[in-house]
């Protein structure tokens, strides 16, 4: 598989604070990646380093095969960092023309990309008159101008209203479906869960997990059970080989699986032991629960 970005042992220190700590991961062509982490976990700093606006303290990163300089590589990359930054006194079209000149691409794509983000009618309005949602969509159009090999989005839905968030997500899904590699930094878990196939989880600049989203939820799930005789139920469960941790609250028994087990098998087993369930739910941990476990335990 072609690698697009390889980060190895990257570290960034701001004085005593270590924003990114010995971070390594690789981004391959064709996947949608999420960088997940609470605020201040080093997501934006990492992106800033690979995008040539923040200086690294140590470590290394390379774009594509490693033979292109960073600023040449960036011409094949589309990126939006935190807030859309354009010249307020220029119209949308003038701003995009400038980006074309910087990236060295033809200006013929401008209308097409404005169409994708739904701003074609407003192309002659000054950037300063745009709403935040429109600014963010213009930023996406600008990032798409060179038909990038990878699109980097840093918190693209931050500060938008529900309609705005929905519009941006639809655009991202559409771009992803066309085969563009996407790297999405976010602290919004459902955003990453909905859009990404791979995820890198950061906390305080440390890489906690990197790999596929579905493999991150590696456990076999858990059962939520209720019956009239809770004590008997717990006793039986503890004697079965399938379960690890069993949590008991007043109304509910939560039993975590060590190996796969179907709900009908469990139900039959318990019925044979004389326990009649009043409540049986089998669940997998959501990304959110997994994420909280990951970021809290370490």
């Amino acid at each position: 598989m072609d690698s697009i970005l390889t980060i190895s042992n990257l570290t960034k220190k701001f004085g005593y604070l270590t924003a990114v700590n010995d971070l390594s991961f690789t981004i391959n062509k064709g996947n949608v990646y999420g960088i997940l982490g609470p605020n201040g976990s080093g997501k934006s700093t990492t992106l800033g380093i690979v995008l040539n606006v923040v200086n690294k303290t140590s470590g290394d990163f390379k774009w594509f095969d490693g033979n292109t300089t960073t600023h040449d590589a960036l011409k094949k990359v589309g990126a939006i960092i935190e807030r859309p930054n354009f010249y307020p006194y220029m119209t949308a079209e003038q701003n995009l023309k400038l980006v074309c000149k910087i990236k060295g691409v033809n200006e013929s794509k401008i209308e097409e990309k404005l169409e994708i983000v739904g701003l074609l009618e407003r192309k002659d309005s000054k950037f300063s008159t745009y709403s935040l949602g429109m600014k963010q969509r213009l930023a996406i159009a600008s990032a798409l101008l060179n038909d990038p090999e990878i699109l980097i989005l840093d918190e693209p839905t931050n500060g938008l209203d529900p309609q705005g968030i929905h519009q941006i997500r639809e655009i991202i899904k559409k771009i992803a479906s066309e085969g563009t590699t996407i790297l999405l930094a976010s602290h919004l878990l459902d955003e990453v869960e909905k859009v990404c196939s791979h995820v890198v989880v950061l906390r305080k600049g440390v890489n906690l997990y990197s790999g596929r989203v579905d493999e991150m939820i590696s456990s076999h799930g858990f059962f939520e059970l209720k019956c009239n005789d809770m004590e008997a139920l717990v006793k039986v469960l503890e004697n079965l080989p399938y379960f690890g941790n069993i949590k008991v609250t007043e109304q509910l028994v939560t039993a975590f699986l060590n190996e796969p087990l179907k709900s009908e098998t469990l139900n039959t087993l318990l019925f044979e032991k004389g326990i009649v369930l009043t409540h049986l739910v089998q669940r997998k941990e959501s990304l959110e629960e997994q994420f909280l476990t990951l970021t809290n335990n370490q």
Partner: peptide
């Protein structure tokens, strides 16, 4: 910042 991200070197 945006100029640099768009591929202009410093």
């Amino acid at each position: 910042k945006q100029n640099l991200i768009d591929g202009l070197s410093k």
